[in-house]
Design a protein around this nucleic acid. Sequence first.
DNA 1: ACAACATATGAATATAACATCATATGAAAT
DNA 2: ATTTCATATGATGTTATATTCATATGTTGT
Lengths: 100, 100
Amino acid sequence: MKSTSYHNFFLNFANTTRFAIIMSLIDKPLNVTEISEKIGEEQSKTSHNLKKLEHCHIIEMKKKGKQRIYSLNAETVIPVLNLIEKHIKNHCKKCDKHEI
Amino acid sequence: MKSTSYHNFFLNFANTTRFAIIMSLIDKPLNVTEISEKIGEEQSKTSHNLKKLEHCHIIEMKKKGKQRIYSLNAETVIPVLNLIEKHIKNHCKKCDKHEI
DNA sequence: ACAACATATGAATATAACATCATATGAAAT
DNA sequence: ATTTCATATGATGTTATATTCATATGTTGT
């Protein structure tokens, strides 16, 4: 599929692993190992997905010794999550009950 | 992948065909044939994708004779689009230049 | 009842996205 | 310089998702 900014952005939220990463960073920044443990996925998978999130500026990274600390771009992410949460509460009581 | 409300919701925006449908409905409601012509896709493809959008309540449908008129759930969609547009303008000058 | 139009559906195929595994890189400590 | 820890990367196989095509359904008008 053609890769656009919009496409990539939403794909990050659609993917369950990356969505879990986003959620894991809501409270505070974490390094890769901590994220992996928190979401229960292996390091390599986490790294691959962190890269995609960073590419879209959904998260930011800063180095600290041999660690890399990832943090959420809260300015965008939190409002988006709030909107969707509200939408799902209003409309999607049973949206995920039956596959589509 | 496990199907959740979040997952399905964002997948709709990530897909370029469905994103085009959403955009086609911003001005005013349209029937299936009109949407198909506006986005330049064939009727069957449009229908399949309309179904997914409707399933997530991103669009709504009302019948009018043999036509089905689809309209946007503007309450959710417009704010989401605005947030992402702003994010992309701020951060993604070159996000879609290189694949990921 | 039949034709014409509008739209939906199912199944098969094609494509895109994802996970995995093995390995590489990089940074600190010894 | 070598080991260890933290993380990234590339290639391959797998799975999820999308498109396509043929056909079905439903609605209106004759």
